[in-house]
């Protein structure tokens, strides 16, 4: 840490904290999760960047969705995402959450994840290299600095539409809405 960074950290300590301490929720989706163990262990060492895995969504602030999302997984993803404390960041990892990838004509796999939960950024590729996670993390730093990583705010504002989409694909949801929905309009 040099002098400029210290001044920056003192000026906006929250931003500093959110930037250099990403806690990723343990959530295994699809095949992309196989890239995560090398990332957090000796070979690539994500702890250099402050990225560590945590076991519960209540403690996490980064959500990596690593691979195809079936309908059953989508249900779990929505519940996990809604339990995470704000500010929270989501990154879609691999090509399957982006547009379906190789499951583009599957009957049970959702194609565009950002129709159901908000996404801050994407890592394209099938599979992306572990380095791509670090690129994503450093990119998130820039976005947080500029105040652009605001997908969780979008979720609050557009919650009505997100909920509608979730119900369209999953049927009746058994949990109450996270934010109040104004029915008139």
């Amino acid at each position: 840490m040099d002098r400029e960074q210290v001044i920056k950290a003192l000026k906006d300590s929250g931003k500093w904290g959110h930037k250099y301490s990403f806690w990723v929720v343990y959530f295994c989706t699809g095949c992309g999760i196989i890239e995560i163990p090398p990332v957090i262990t000796s070979r690539w060492d994500a702890e250099r960047f402050g990225v560590i895995p945590v076991a519960t969504p209540r403690q996490a602030n980064l959500f990596l969705i690593t691979g195809y999302v079936s309908l059953k997984t989508l249900r779990a993803i929505i519940r996990t995402y809604e339990q995470m404390p704000e500010p929270k960041y989501t990154v879609g990892f691999g090509s399957c959450p982006i547009n379906g990838g190789m499951y583009w004509d599957s009957y049970n796999t959702i194609k565009h994840l950002d129709k159901y939960i908000p996404i801050d950024g994407w890592i394209a590729g099938c599979m992306p290299r572990p380095e791509a996670i670090f690129i994503a993390v450093t990119h998130l730093w820039t976005m947080i600095d500029k105040g652009m990583a605001d997908a969780y705010k979008k979720y609050r504002e557009q919650y009505k539409y997100y909920r509608r989409n979730q119900e369209m694909v999953l049927g009746e949801l058994e949990w109450p809405p996270l934010y109040p929905i104004d029915e008139d309009e």
């Binding site: 309908l71 194609k111 369209m168």
Partner: peptide, 29 residues
């Protein structure tokens, strides 16, 4: 998770038609 009119592993189940009907019809935010 969903109910299907034709069970999805039957040969007469058209997955592409189904994807077009269900997943592509969901509007983006």
């Amino acid at each position: 998770e969903r109910d299907y009119a034709i069970p999805p592993f039957r040969k007469d189940f058209d997955t592409r038609e189904y994807v077009k009907d269900v997943f592509d019809s969901i509007p983006p935010i």
